[in-house]
């Protein structure tokens, strides 16, 4: 496994201070590594990548990597990314958002970007919590879980990102975890080249804000949980429905090839130009 980390180092910004700001054991760094490997494996030049991030811990990921990076405001990363993609359709526009950013404050933009099927690669780092602001619940906090704003347990059901994105009409919908890194690499690579809106929901532990309030003793415990809970979609589907509780399917859920918005737009312009 030589040259895994060296490769990542080549993509990091050398004038940025390391280690990064994320907590010990935070999965966001693992995802960043996965993203860098995927971009490298596909041979995409750094100049051709625009990495747009939202606010929160996920938002801090972008600054460390030597792409064209944009740290947008809370919830609006997809709107900025939409502008970049429409203005420069040949660029690989990647959006990194947290669960709160993507489907709480930015929920409307999320479903509309998926509906438009615009060619963005969206990596939603789902850690079930608002991490940076101190552990408040998000729209992804599971029923019954504790957070600083659900001191008596979460009463609301959480969003299922996969079903939501499927229903909104995205081309590519997948889920991975930062424990299953090789699967994650594969999903990110697929998402990067897939035309249209491509989602990878990345389950990533937040021990500091979620784990400690929900009976995980250490970051390692959270990874142990991910290791046990996650299973390939194909196996999950074969599972007796009674035994599915607590298990999380990972893999590719939607794999359509509808033309992306920017492709349709280019076709419309070509038609107009002909007269």
């Amino acid at each position: 496994m030589a040259e895994v980390t060296q490769l990542i180092h080549e993509y990091l910004r050398h004038d940025k201070k390391f280690p990064h700001v994320l907590c010990p054991g935070c999965g966001h760094g693992i995802l960043l590594g996965s993203l860098i490997r995927s971009v490298h494996a596909l041979g995409i030049p750094k100049d051709d990548v625009a990495l747009v991030a939202g606010i929160g811990c996920s938002g801090r990921v972008a600054v460390y990597v030597d792409f064209n990076t944009v740290h947008a405001v809370h919830g609006r990363a997809l709107t900025v990314a939409t502008g970049i993609k429409m203005a420069k359709p040949d660029m690989h526009v990647i959006v990194v958002q947290g669960d709160g950013d993507a489907l709480s404050i930015g929920g409307n933009h999320f479903i509309h970007a998926a509906r438009r099927n615009i060619g963005l690669t969206v990596l939603v780092l789902n850690n079930f919590i608002y991490g940076m602001t101190g552990g408040q619940c998000s729209s992804a906090t599971p029923l019954g879980c504790w957070s600083t704003t659900t001191p008596y347990g979460q009463m609301e059901k959480s969003f299922d990102f996969v079903e939501m994105t499927r229903a909104a009409g995205a081309n590519f919908v997948s889920r991975g975890t930062v424990f299953h890194v090789k699967t994650l690499d594969k999903l990110v690579r697929q998402a990067l080249v897939h035309p249209g809106f491509s989602l990878v929901e990345v389950l990533t532990p937040c021990h500091t804000q979620f784990g400690r309030k929900n009976k995980f003793k250490s970051p390692v415990d959270m990874y142990q949980w991910l290791k046990k809970a996650a299973m390939p979609l194909e196996a999950y589907e074969k599972l007796d429905p009674d035994k599915r509780a607590g298990r999380i399917p990972i893999g590719v859920f939607v794999d359509n090839h509808e033309p992306a918005l920017e492709t349709r737009y280019a076709a419309m312009r070509a038609k107009l130009a002909k007269g």
């Binding site: 944009v70 502008g83 203005a87 660029m91 933009h109």
Partner: peptide, 11 residues
């Protein structure tokens, strides 16, 4: 406005 800002960054 978000889209405009993105496109502005794109030149």
């Amino acid at each position: 406005l978000g889209a405009c800002i993105g496109a502005s960054l794109a030149g």
